[in-house]
Simulated assay, not measured.
Amino acid sequence: MSLQPLIIIPSRLASTRLERKSLALIDGLPMVVQVLRRALEADMGPVSVACCGPEIAEVVHQNGGQAILTDPDLPSGTDRMWAAIQTLSPESRPSIVINLQGDLPNISASVLQAVLRPLENPAVDIATIACVIENPQDLSNENVVKIALAKESATRGRGLYFSRATIPFGADTHYHHIGVYAYRYKALEKFVSLPASPLEKAERLEQLRALEAGMRIDVELVETIPHTVDTALDLEAARNWFERQ
């Protein structure tokens, strides 16, 4: 297996809060293409879009990207990512896979590159990233996922729990989880084989499945939070950001 990470961007048209958001135009390009460009700019390794159908695949190919068609009925982006990897020959499957959500159109190269750092520790199964919460309103926003973090250095810690609630209670500093993950191949293989766990179902956060199964998730702290596009207001904010650049 290659030591070079493979970045996969899961993308589907169905969305509960913003229909067809993968193809929503931002600065003249579909959002999935903006995310693809950010991944290529990070220059970390090959990038593929794992998509639900030919409409997304076509726009990816038109913009010079690689797309892999997957079953449109897969339940999650992680399952879609795993399905895409299985289309590769066994000898070309990577030792590290990065799951880059297709709704982060302005993620910077430095933020994306940071997700690999916790895997320097061989005890870590999954790595992810977070940022200090500065806006007090985010503490009560259930769409801002928080982390109970056991810090091991100024920029890294072990993720003990993830929640939509404000955790830890009474803490001076809270952390906003950014949904980018780097998996060791074997950890991803184990993760997708597990059933959805009770805490995962309660919080609607699939990373809790890994924690309940005893897997280790470490977190790298970064300075900036990329725009996540979940709603029409988020889409407008992302468009405005690109116009200002």
Results as ranks from 00 to 15, higher is better:
Asn99Cys: 13
Leu100Glu: 07
Gly102His: 04
Gly102Val: 02
Asp103Cys: 13
Asp103Val: 05
Leu104Phe: 09
Asn106Met: 06
Ile107Trp: 06
Ile107Tyr: 01
Ser108Gln: 13
Ser108Lys: 13
Ser108Pro: 08
Ala109Pro: 03
Val111Arg: 11
Leu112Trp: 00
Gln113Met: 11
Gln113Asp: 07
Ala114Gln: 05
Leu116His: 05
Arg117Gly: 01
Glu120Gln: 15
Glu120Ala: 14
Pro122Glu: 09
Pro122Met: 08
Ala123Ile: 09
Val124Pro: 01
Asp125Leu: 09
Ala127Met: 09
Ala127Glu: 05
Ile129Cys: 10
Cys131Ser: 13
Val132Ala: 12
Val132Trp: 09
Val132Ser: 13
Ile133Arg: 02
Glu134Asp: 14
Asn135Ala: 10
Asn135Asp: 15
Asn135Val: 06
Pro136Ile: 04
Pro136Cys: 08
Gln137Tyr: 03
Asp138Tyr: 00
Asp138Thr: 05
Leu139Lys: 07
Ser140Asp: 13
Asn141Met: 08
Asn141Asp: 14
Glu142Gln: 14
Asn143Tyr: 07
Val144Arg: 05
Val144Ile: 11
Val145Arg: 06
Lys146Arg: 13
Lys146Ser: 02
Ala148Ile: 05
Ala150Glu: 15
Ala150Lys: 14
Lys151Asp: 04
Lys151Gln: 15
Lys151Cys: 12
Lys151Phe: 11
Glu152Val: 14
Glu152Phe: 12
Ser153Thr: 15
Ala154Tyr: 03
Thr155Val: 12
Gly157Trp: 03
Gly159Met: 09
Gly159Pro: 00
Leu160Thr: 04
Leu160Asn: 04
Leu160Arg: 06
Tyr161Lys: 07
Tyr161Glu: 00
Phe162Leu: 15
Ser163Val: 07
Arg164Asn: 15
Ile167Arg: 02
Ile167Tyr: 00
Ile167Val: 14
Pro168Val: 08
Phe169Trp: 08
Asp172Ala: 06
Asp172Gln: 11
Tyr175Lys: 07
Tyr175Asn: 09
Tyr175Phe: 14
Val180Ile: 15
Val180Asp: 02
Tyr181Cys: 11
Tyr183His: 05
Tyr183Asn: 01
Arg184Gly: 03
Arg184Asn: 03
Ala187Gly: 06
Ala187His: 02
Leu188Ala: 05
Glu189Ser: 12
Glu189Trp: 01
Glu189Tyr: 00
Val192Ser: 04
Val192Gly: 03
Val192Trp: 03
Leu194Arg: 10
Ala196Tyr: 04
Pro198Thr: 10
Pro198Gly: 03
Pro198Arg: 12
Pro198Leu: 04
Leu199Phe: 08
Leu199Ser: 10
Lys201Asp: 04
Ala202Met: 13
Glu203Ser: 02
Gln207His: 12
Gln207Lys: 11
Leu208Cys: 03
Arg209Tyr: 03
Ala210Asp: 06
Leu211Gln: 06
Leu211Asp: 00
Glu212Pro: 01
Glu212Leu: 10
Gly214Asp: 06
